[in-house]
Design a protein around this nucleic acid. Structure first.
Lengths: 173, 173
DNA sequence: CGATATTTGATATGGTCCATAACAATTATC
DNA sequence: GATAATTGTTATGGACCATATCAAATATCG
């Protein structure tokens, strides 16, 4: 609560410093110096991730799919007959949180839970025909709009190198 | 709610498919195929970001600093005399959400808000001496543990290339 | 000048995502 | 056959993010 003596002193200096350069009303505020921040991997990684997700959402807006939902559909398509625990855990989703996600996808008739005949505790996941169709359309949108954008920005070789490095970090860090 | 006919049929096939390979009790569950997922930028970006943040937290655990708090301290140190709105907006933090963050940092005597003499609405932000000391120690920990780890994994040249590409995405995507 | 609009920090609030505990049904273990 | 473990589920709380709103201070403009 109380401000230290030294903080007060440096604060006075800081307040003074702004006095001299009182901006004329229409002046643009000077951009802040990012400094070491622009070299911080976590910082730039987070900001890039937000931008990529944002762009992804725009590209598949017509299908109303989030990145997480897209990843579920992709994984179920590639691994039919797996149960909720298996799909969720490979995506890093906790089982309790996966329930609502599946409720959503199932209510939109994109995938279905089926009680396994082997183990009647587990639900086997399958894409519906509509789910397959929507996923196919999503893939096309992602390739033509989302990935194409990235290729324009970085070039194909760099894009592949980027994904390889990120995979390495995700798996071995 | 109701499962489509086609979904039921493919479900039967899926359930049957698992019947043949009922695992012997001690068998390891086969890893799922990621398929196209491992080529999805958003997916690998998100997972890499989580790993990096996790590692960052471990490296500076002794200082109890999150990546977001670290970025605030860095930016305030580099840009003394700026107000809350300026610091928050360059970090992509909304002003309302920045209040609690500053309450935290201020209660730990790492930074201080000072009413500006120019504009008595705004609070000028300054690092306290303790804040400067903690930030200096944090920088050393990050450099020696966090970044060093990344250099070991990718090599210095690749690390720089990675950060450059991520910056490009963050700024131009 | 003075009325109105804008800005700043702050509060309240709701949404989404993430994590843990607990439970019933089912299956595995011994 | 008693006990333990697993599966899907619910409930719940925390962290983070976004919007509306407010009082105080300042800017704008008649």
């Amino acid at each position: 609560m109380t401000v230290s003596k030294t903080a007060e002193k440096s604060a006075e200096k800081a307040a003074e410093a702004t006095k001299g350069r009182k901006d004329p009303p229409e002046a643009l505020a000077e951009a802040l110096q990012l400094g070491e921040l622009s070299e911080q991997l976590g910082y730039v990684l987070k900001r890039a991730q937000l931008k990529v997700f944002e762009n992804f959402l725009r590209c598949v807006a017509s299908l109303q799919l989030t990145p997480a939902q897209f990843s579920v559909l992709l994984l179920v398509e590639k691994n039919p007959g797996r149960n909720q625990t298996e799909i969720a855990s490979t995506l890093g989703i906790l089982r309790p949180n996966f329930v609502a996600m599946l409720d959503n996808l199932e209510s939109r008739d994109l995938c279905a839970r089926i009680r396994s005949t082997n183990d009647r505790r587990s639900h086997i996941l399958v894409l519906t025909d509509k789910g397959k169709a929507v996923l196919a359309r999503a893939k096309k949108l992602v390739a033509s709009k989302h990935e194409a954008r990235l290729n324009d920005l970085l070039g194909t070789a760099n894009r592949e190198a980027l994904i390889a490095m990120l995979s390495k970090i995700a798996n071995e860090f």
